[in-house]
Write a protein that binds this DNA or RNA. Structure first.
Lengths: 178, 178
DNA sequence: GTAGTCATGTAAGACGTTACATGATTCT
DNA sequence: AGAATCATGTAACGTCTTACATGACTAC
């Protein structure tokens, strides 16, 4: 379970309510969890039980009350331990490649069509990443290093899609007509 | 659940036992499921119940009996339907990027160390992909197209790691000393 | 004799998504 | 009138991994 570290990471920057975290998650490629209620709210309740975060209820006029979560010293220690730990390799799950692998009974036209539909989705995804990068101010930028790292994280996603598009071009070029 | 289509795809090439499929899965980046028993054996039993595959028990001397699974016409129809369907975008889950995102409390040295540990893992993974590509004959290669597609699938993984390494180089170059 | 391969299967639990439930306010 | 946003939480289910269970044979 990494989601707890993702949440601790965000809380180490500033305090958030569950609802705010949920919105951050659902707009983010980095925090890939779908931003569903269950995982976030349940994780926050557990983090609170383990005293890695604290809860503060904030009443609002004309709106339901918020629970603002803040990271504790214990939480910071846990987070730092994880941040320094050996990085894992990224997990890639590419269903399109599995489709390609089973493409032996497709006609040349069907295959080209499949490829161009994948290409279109990649283009769209790349554009969305670039748009997000422009708008995106939801990250710490107190120091040059923080600003730089966040820009590189955005670039990582862009460059993934660019790389995938380049690869697809090679597929289209080399594909035997038979 | 895509694993059933992954299995159908392999069975559309030739018949396999559960144990053989399990080995294919655990050596493969494409078929990313960990090659655990439960999913494969249970999925095979379900596919059999739905008449998408047939089972044939093969007795062996000095070894336990095998269950050889073959795809049915119904299975081929299902598989083709899925293969022609709109491809999904790849899912990438990169915990290292989440570590980077929370790196604001690391020293310059700690951060450089984290980066170089990730770099080493990427190199290793790239080498392993290249080795696999050399040895790899576990795929259909009856036509030029099949051979080409399988080589491009291997290249996709290699190029992912190469791209990631290039990106890391940019991170190291641009990282502010502060 | 200990570990590994061949071969199938079940059980338990972690992780993740979708949907349900509530209720006021605001926007179209 | 209907949908969207704010806000929290639960229930049910699907997916995925680890571990357990059995048993014969092989290799060191």
């Amino acid at each position: 379970m990494t989601i707890q570290y993702a949440i601790l990471g965000l809380l180490s920057w500033k305090s958030f309510s569950g609802y705010e975290l949920k919105k951050l998650f659902s707009n983010s490629s980095l925090f890939y969890w779908s931003g569903n209620n269950n995982q976030i709210y349940v994780t926050l309740l557990n983090l609170n039980k383990e005293k890695l975060v604290t809860q503060e209820i904030q009443q609002q006029e004309n709106l339901p009350a918020k629970k603002i979560y803040s990271i504790t010293k214990k939480g910071l220690t846990e987070l730092k331990k994880w941040t320094l730990a050996n990085p894992e390799l990224p997990e890639i799950r590419n269903a399109f490649l599995i489709q390609l692998a089973g493409a032996h009974f497709l006609s040349h036209e069907e295959l080209l069509d499949l490829i161009s539909r994948y290409e279109e989705e990649l283009y769209l995804a790349l554009l969305m990443e670039r748009e997000k990068a422009k708008r995106d101010t939801d990250h710490p930028n107190r120091t040059k290093r923080e600003t730089f790292l966040w820009s590189m994280i955005n670039k990582n996603f862009e460059s993934f899609y660019e790389n995938e598009i380049k690869w697809l071009t090679l597929v289209k070029k080399g594909l035997p007509h038979e």
